[in-house]
Amino acid sequence: MSVGTAQAGVNGVVAGPREVVRRRRRTLLTFTVRWIYFLPAAVYLALFFGYPIVKNITMSFQHYTTATFYTGEAPWVGLSNYIAVIQSQVFGTTIVNTAIFTVGCIVGQFGLGLLLALFFKQRFPLNGLLRSLLLLPWLLPLIVSSAVWKWILDQDSGVLNEFLVGLHITPGPVSWLTSPSLALGSVILVCIWVGIPFNAVILYGGLQEIPTELYEAAALDGATGWKAFRHVTWPLLRPVTDVVLVLGVVYTLKVIDIILGLTDGGPANATQTIATRSYQLSFSLFDFGQGSAMGNVLLVVSLIFAVIYLRLSRRSSNV
């Protein structure tokens, strides 16, 4: 818009008034045309994101079960779905699990991703090739990663136990996925493995943006190695790290494939998160009302982080 207007101003001196009017009409027209271009996307987004949110909210106040699909009846039940979900014994576990899972995943992914990004910032042969191969865990379907890790972590014939027992690191096979005290840790491990490439690539991009001169100036002041990282790299990388961390939280909160594939929320709900519990309520127990209530809890948490993301990205674009 602004470009068009500016041009009309410049050319207007030469062109007659009629030319200006025609130009303005075309600007107006293209404005409408532009929104016609956007219309299909608007309709799609409304149907596949807007509608589900509204539907989740309404369903969460309804008794919405398998019977509803036959009779079409979904009586309003007020807050009772929320009360049932929150009073359920599993609720506390799922909240704690979700928090541990998200924090554990993010800390691991981010820490190792940052180390890799710093490592690959150095020049050495085959750097580019190795960096792109590193992306593979992130590109694989999550259910494929789950399957492979389920086999690696298998108690009886998994290669990890074979390795650990063979080297006498552990006295016997460890029940990585079937012990209630270890399962969540194992699921976090797989989540970290999947997320490292994404973190490494984004942080690597951020590192490349930091001007070399700053390191030279810092080195003149004697700041190299850890000091350079502390006083140059970290402060300048902050906008990128903020965004990566918040995006990481939002993406990790909704993870469902890894958990369903590895443990299906078990053993004894040891790996049940808000997302998997919502799935379980709707699609295993066929109580869509309660499933939606649980889904809305997840939605609210996600949207809080989405707002934080907006704040952060606004601040970084102002800089």
Partner: peptide
């Protein structure tokens, strides 16, 4: 950022 399960519940 909308969790897939929320969309699936409604779809």
């Amino acid at each position: 950022m909308i969790p897939g399960i929320v969309v699936a519940n409604a779809l």
